[in-house]
Amino acid sequence: MKKIIGEFKEFIMRGNVLDLAVGVIIGGAFKTIVDSLTNDIISPILGLFGGLDFSSMVLSIGGVNLKYGSFITAIINFLIMAVVIFIFVKIVNSVISFGKKKPADEPVTTKVCPYCCTEIDINATKCPHCTSELIEIEPETLESGEPDVI
């Protein structure tokens, strides 16, 4: 029994589990904010233009009430939350990459042998793998999409 408790303790103390727990708690708090935004601001504004309130939409079948207006509100909540999270992740990624330098384009140092399709040095005139002679093509031929060696 002590072994199982020790393994469980080790599992709970892993960084990923703690990060996940914090994410779930923050996500729950964020959900209440988005729910309030949808129910208290967006739905009434849509009601002004459309003349209807989603939360009051109910379909009665027999003795059962289907609250499809609440479902529409939940879909709006989801879409708003997805857009806000997308924007938040984009902002965080741009802040993280702000100080990083983009790698400069490195000069081309290799080419592909048209005979054996192996990568060789850009200055080679003979392929070291298949021993084929490599003849350079004129620059105007390169623009047509042809390979740069024959």
Results as ranks from 00 to 15, higher is better:
Phe8Asp: 08
Met13Lys: 06
Glu7Ala: 07
Gly27Lys: 04
Val17Trp: 00
Asp19Arg: 07
Ile41Phe: 12
Gly27Met: 01
Asn16Asp: 04
Arg14Ser: 06
Asp19Ile: 02
Arg14Lys: 12
Phe30Thr: 14
Ile12Glu: 12
Asn16Glu: 12
Thr38Asn: 11
Ile33Asn: 15
Ala29Pro: 12
Gly23Cys: 08
Phe30Ser: 15
Asn16Arg: 08
Glu7Met: 07
Gly28Gln: 13
Arg14Phe: 06
Lys9His: 02
Asp40Leu: 07
Ile12Cys: 05
Ile33Gly: 13
Ser43Asn: 14
Asn16His: 06
Asp40Thr: 10
Gly6Glu: 03
Ala29Tyr: 13
Gly23Trp: 05
Gly27Ala: 07
Gly23Arg: 05
Ile41Leu: 13
Val24Leu: 13
Gly15Ile: 00
Val24Arg: 12
Leu20Trp: 09
Phe8Pro: 01
Met13Thr: 08
Met13Gly: 03
Ser36Ala: 14
Ile42His: 07
Ile42Gly: 05
Ala29Val: 10
Thr32Gln: 11
Leu20Cys: 05
Gly15Lys: 00
Phe11Met: 04
Thr38Leu: 02
Leu37Asp: 00
Leu37Val: 00
Gly6Ala: 02
Gly28Thr: 10
Asn39Val: 14
Val22Cys: 12
Asn39Cys: 12
Asp35His: 04
Thr32Leu: 14
Glu7Arg: 06
Lys31Glu: 13
Val34His: 00
Phe8Trp: 14
Ile25Met: 08
Leu20Asn: 10
Thr32Asn: 13
Asn39Phe: 13
Asp40Glu: 15
Leu20Val: 04
Val17Tyr: 03
Gly28Ile: 07
Asn39Ser: 15
Phe11Trp: 10
Lys9Trp: 04
Gly6Arg: 02
Arg14Val: 05
Gly27Ile: 00
Ala21Gln: 05
Lys9Asp: 06
Gly27Val: 04
Ile12Val: 11
Val24Cys: 14
Thr32Ala: 11
Ser43Pro: 00
Ile42Met: 07
Val34Gln: 01
Val24Phe: 10
Gly27Cys: 03
Ser36Leu: 12
Thr38His: 02
Phe8Met: 10
Met13Trp: 15
Asn16Phe: 05
Leu20Ser: 11
Val22Ile: 13
Val34Lys: 00
Ala29Phe: 12
Gly28Phe: 12
Asn39Glu: 15
Arg14His: 07
Phe30Cys: 14
Gly6Thr: 01
Ser43Leu: 08
Ile41Ser: 08
Ser43Gln: 08
Leu37Ala: 00
Ser36Gly: 14
Asp35Lys: 02
Phe11Asn: 00
Gly15Thr: 00
Asn16Ala: 03
Glu10Leu: 07
Phe30Gln: 15
Gly23His: 04
Ala21His: 05
Asp19Ala: 08
Ile42Asp: 05
Ile41Glu: 03
Arg14Ile: 06
Ile12Arg: 09
Gly23Glu: 05
Gly27Pro: 04
Gly28Trp: 14
Ile26Ala: 15
Ser36Gln: 14
Phe30Lys: 15
Phe8Arg: 10
Ser43Tyr: 05
Gly27Thr: 02
Gly28Arg: 09
Asp40Cys: 05
Ala21Trp: 06
Val17Lys: 01
Asn16Ser: 04
Ala29Gly: 13
Gly27Gln: 03
Arg14Ala: 04
Ser36Lys: 10
Gly15Trp: 03
Asn16Met: 07
Asp35Arg: 01
Asp40Val: 07
Asn39Ala: 14
Glu10Asp: 04
Val24Lys: 12
Gly15Tyr: 01
Asn39Leu: 12
Asp35Val: 01
Leu37His: 01
